[in-house]
Every structure is written in C-alpha cells, then in structure tokens.
Design a protein around this nucleic acid. Structure first.
Lengths: 337, 337
DNA sequence: TTGTAGGCGTTATCAA
DNA sequence: TTGATAACGCCTACAA
C-alpha cells in the first residue's frame, strides 16, 4: 500500500503539504496542488483511515448494538435501513455490533464499539438493565443513546415508544366495539416490550371492569409458530373468544392460520390485532389490524440527538427544552368483528 | 481516556511490558503480570483499537457491502445474521457498508472498507459489473469474495447460486404436471438475478417445445405491490393461465392476493411458485411453493474461504481442488393444481 | 524477564 | 506557501 510519504516524494513536496491538499486545510498553491493530485493518481494512493482517525481522535462513525434475536424480520430491517441512511447523510459511517443473546455479549459489543473509538453509540438493548445503561452512559464521554427503553437518570439519552399505552389503546378499542372475551398472546416475557404489552392488556380490561381470565392468556415467543401454538393451547383449554390480540404481527399471522386450520373461524371471523405492522401482513390477512411502532421516526430522533451532541450541543440545556421524548404509537386501524 | 503509558507508570513497568501482558506474547513474570492487571483494573484502561490495528497492520474485521435495496426483507436478514455469527465465531468483527443504489455508491462503499483496512471483504453486488469486480479483486491484496455472481477470471473468489437452472427446474416441474399456460412475473430486469430467472423460464418452455407467449410475461419489481399489479396486467390482457411463477415470494404473495381479489381464483386454484422461501409465506398461502436459495450455506462458504486466505491458505491450490462452487437450489415442493 | 527505541501512517503546530 | 517535527497509542525487534 502506498503511503502519504511516497506521494510526497513523487510530487517533490513534504508529507505535510500532501496532508494539506487532502484535507483542504491551510494554504497551498494551485501548482503544487496539481502536482500532488497527479502523484496521488499515479500511485493509486489511498489514505489509511486508521492512521487518520488515530491522529484526529475522531472516527466519523456511529456504532449500533442490536441483539441477534432481532435480526430476523422486517422491524430490524427498517431500523437498520434508516440508521444507515441517516448516518451517511450526516457524513458518517454506521458500524454494527452484534449483541447476540446474553447480557455479557451485549456488554462486549458495546465495549468493542467504544474500543474502536466510535464517535457515538446507539444501543438497542435486549438484556441489559436500565440501571446498567444509565451507568454506562455516565462512565463514557462518547454520546450514547438508548432505543426502546426508558432511562431513569439520563432521560434525554433515550427514545422509546410506550408499548403499554398503545396495547391498552388497542384492547380498549376492541372493548368499545363490544368484545368481552379477548384472548392475548404475549411476547417473550423476559423482554420488557413483552411485559409492557401484557400489562397494557390487563390495564385495559381493568379499566373497563372486565374480570381478568388468565386462561385467555398464553405466552408466545414472537414467532409465527408460537402464535399458532398459542391458539392451539387456548382451544385445548376450551376457551371461547371473539377477539385476539397478539403481541406482534408474526404471532398474529401464525394465530390466524391456526384458527383457520382448526376450523374454528375463517379469517375475519375473529378480530385479531398484532403489533409492528409488518409490511407484508395485509397481503396475507386483510382483516389483521396492527399497531405500528414508528421505528423510522425513533431512529431519526436518536441519530439527530447524537449528531447534535457531537457538534458540541449543550445537552443539559437541550434536555430541559424538550424533556423526555415519548413517541406514541399511531392509532390502530380497528378490528373487524 | 487512559492510555497504556499510564497503566505502565502505575504498575511501575514499561509500556512494552504492559503490551506483552495484554497480548500474551513474550515472557513476563507472574508477579508483574498481577501488578499490571491490577493497574489496568484500577485505571479502567481500555486498549485503543485504532492504534493497535495501525501498529499490527491487522484489523480483525471483515467488511460486507450490500445494497440498500436488499435491506428490506427476510433474505437480507438471514444473510446478515449468519455473516455476523460466523465472523464472530472466527474471532473477527463484521463491518457493514451500504452500497446504496448506484454503481458509484457501491464503489465508494468498497473503497471505504478498504480504507478502513478491513482484513477481507465480501461484496454482494447489485450494480457493479462482473468485469469490474474481477478487476477490483486483482488490484487489491486483501482477500475479496463476491456473492451471488459468477466471476470469469477469479472464479474461486465467488459463491453463487444458479438462478437460471433452478427457475428452469421449477417451470419444468409445472410442465410435467400438465401445465401449458404458465404466466411469469419477472424481477427487476436491471438485476442479473431477475434476468437469469426469466431466462430459466424461457428455457424450460423451449425445452418442452411449448411456444413462448410474451403476453404471459410481466415485469415486476420484487415487491408485493408489483406482484399484484402483474396479475392485474395479465388479466387485463385477457390472458388465461393455470400456473404462475413469480420471481420471488413477495411478488408471489401480492399476486395471489390479486388473483383472489379479482375473483379469478381462490388460493390453491392456480399453481403459484415463488423464490427465496420467505419464512412467513407458508403461513399466508399454504399452496405457495418456493424455491429456496441456500443463503446460509453460501455465506458460510464465503467466509470460510476468506478466513482460509487470511490464514495464508494457498488459494490457487485450493481452487484446483474444489473448482467453481455451485450451490444448487433445493427441489421445489411442487405446485398444487 | 524487562526496558529502549523505532515504526505504523496520519494530523497539527511551529518556524521558516 | 512550505517543511520539520512532535504527537496519536500501540507493537516489536533488539539490547540489557
């Protein structure tokens, strides 16, 4: 690999001059500029970003930590798509680190990004506690933002969506439409999102003075298979219901299939609501409603804040201005009875 | 950020010794080891990977270039999922660069990864020609592998799946089952994959001496909407057909929906085959067959080769051993008439 | 077993 | 307008 020094020699100037030409900082005559550019051309020179970043103490990269388990599915694709796009729009590069499937590995991933000297970091946590993340944020000078979780201390360093409230709204909607026996398929209950949605379901019932029937609740694992299994379980319990809420669209799809296969109902006969608005879902089951989580808006806000901090924005001030950011889920389309 | 020098001072040793302790190279007494570790602990020292990589001329990273347009959907998720997993299994890190949506941007992405001094690079091309990639591979000393394209010169530097052959097989299957009027929805025809599948369709017809009816072919754009639109177009042309092949599952799903909405057929009445085996598809349309592309196996082979080269494997030799790698698509499940 | 010193390829601060 | 030269933080002979 040809280095800056070789370019300098070839152009008959010093390293410093070449550096100036490349960075655009400092004066340099048009004449030498031309010679340098020619030398670069001839030698096929390419800057070594490692060296540059080491010297400037800036890498122009944002790090993103996401769990492996999120990789499958449209939700992650959308997140990544927009994260990459926005990052590059701001003249930076996104670096992805895999949080895998444990708290330890999630920590490692964060550490890696820090060691790589990413200018800023986005964490989409799965296993780390809110406390630990508050801790991490305070321990490091790099700007860090947390997605999909509500922090206690560094409330301006997180962007989240109120899963509980939106689930409650969805269930309330069903109740308003006259439903009383509403089945619920949870997500994995080791995930905050899963817990929050379940909790929203319970709250909605309580709010409308409908007694909670535990037999109408089954635990799922976010995938279609567990949605189908959930329906089987409900049926084997001998439960009847006129509506069903699944904690995400994948499970909802599996559930509808199972309802159909069991001969219990045709799609449309039981009101089903899912979450995440997987783009292909309506092509499958037109009767499927879904609560859309504004991933795009959330990642956009996240990156904006990060860039703002990198540009020296006074974040304490910013915080008092906008306070805690809560992006509410949009209204559901309404179930079909 | 505390540096190695500070750790050294605190432990009362030299930088070199600290470095030895960390890397595990060279002798160092247990006693000083302990002192160094303690100093690291106390100071919260973290190695600067930029500096380390600059000094060692190794980054332990693999770069991956993918187009933005691939981001959506399960196919990409699976690719990324396994790429990340395998890379980390081999003790390395995956760095993703966005190829966006033009040849220029694809080149830029590759260049970025090279400038970052990734040890090796994987390209999943969308716009670059085979010739240019052959060129790139020869110009750079880093190992480079190309996915989903068949290179002329560096045939051992690519892993691809024979889209034409597998499409031909799928269509032949339909013909064997008695179909004669088989409609075809293409992918984007600026993509090699799209062209190859179309070509497989035509070959199958020719092989069975079935005259080609251009009116049975419509151009799609890989998404469900274009699949639905394709069916509308076919119907508006007054064409009749007993089977339909869409160049991917997303379009197939859209197509089935449109067939249904138009009242032309219920799902199952027209044989439909898609590609890519999107995991959720069978939950939607049990009658949908699909040709599975072995992404997992392909990415696995790709990374294996890369690592092999990094470890100093003699690639010219390797090539003569295994020759050109062709991963054939698995047999389709068979359409329902 | 440990320390010294030079190098990795840039940037950035001074003088000239 | 240009050129030395010292960082940046780490690795690695070589010497001790």
């Amino acid at each position: 690999m040809t280095t800056m020094l070789e370019v300098a020699k070839r152009a008959g100037v010093s390293k410093a001059t070449v550096s100036r030409v490349l960075s655009g900082n400092g004066y340099v005559s048009q004449e030498t500029k031309d010679r340098v550019f020619q030398a670069i051309e001839e030698s096929g020179y390419r800057p070594n970003l490692l060296a540059r970043n080491l010297a400037t103490r800036r890498t122009q990269t944002l790090g993103l930590v996401v769990t492996n388990t999120l990789y499958h599915g449209v939700y992650f694709s959308e997140l990544l798509f927009h994260a990459a796009r926005m990052t590059e729009e701001k003249g930076r590069q996104l670096i992805l680190a895999d949080g895998k499937h444990s708290a330890d590995e999630e920590r490692e991933a964060i550490q890696y990004l820090l060691d790589m000297r990413c200018d800023a970091i986005i964490i989409y946590p799965r296993f780390l506690s809110v406390e630990e993340m508050d801790d991490i944020i305070q321990k490091h000078e790099q700007p860090i933002m947390v997605l999909n979780r509500r922090l206690r201390k560094n409330s301006s360093h997180c962007v989240w969506s109120d899963h509980k409230a939106s689930c409650q709204a969805a269930v309330s909607q069903l109740i308003d439409m006259g439903h009383r026996d509403i089945a619920f398929i949870t997500g994995s209950l080791d995930s905050p999102t899963g817990i929050e949605r379940l909790s929203g379901y319970k709250d909605a019932l309580a709010q409308h003075h409908i007694p909670l029937n535990d037999a109408l609740i089954v635990e799922g694992k976010w995938n279609p298979e567990s949605g189908a299994l959930g329906v089987s379980t409900l049926l084997s319990r001998g439960e009847t219901f006129t509506a069903l809420v699944a904690s995400n669209d994948d499970m909802a799809i599996g559930a509808v299939k199972q309802l159909h296969d069991s001969g219990v109902a045709t799609p449309g006969q039981v009101s089903v609501i899912g979450f995440d608005d997987v783009s292909i879902a309506p092509y499958i089951i037109p009767s499927l409603s879904s609560v859309r989580i504004p991933v795009t808006e959330m990642i956009k806000e996240t990156i904006s804040r990060l860039i703002f901090m990198l540009d020296g924005g006074d974040f304490t001030l910013q915080q008092t201005f906008s306070g805690e950011l809560i992006l509410r889920d949009s209204v559901i389309a309404g179930p079909h009875v």
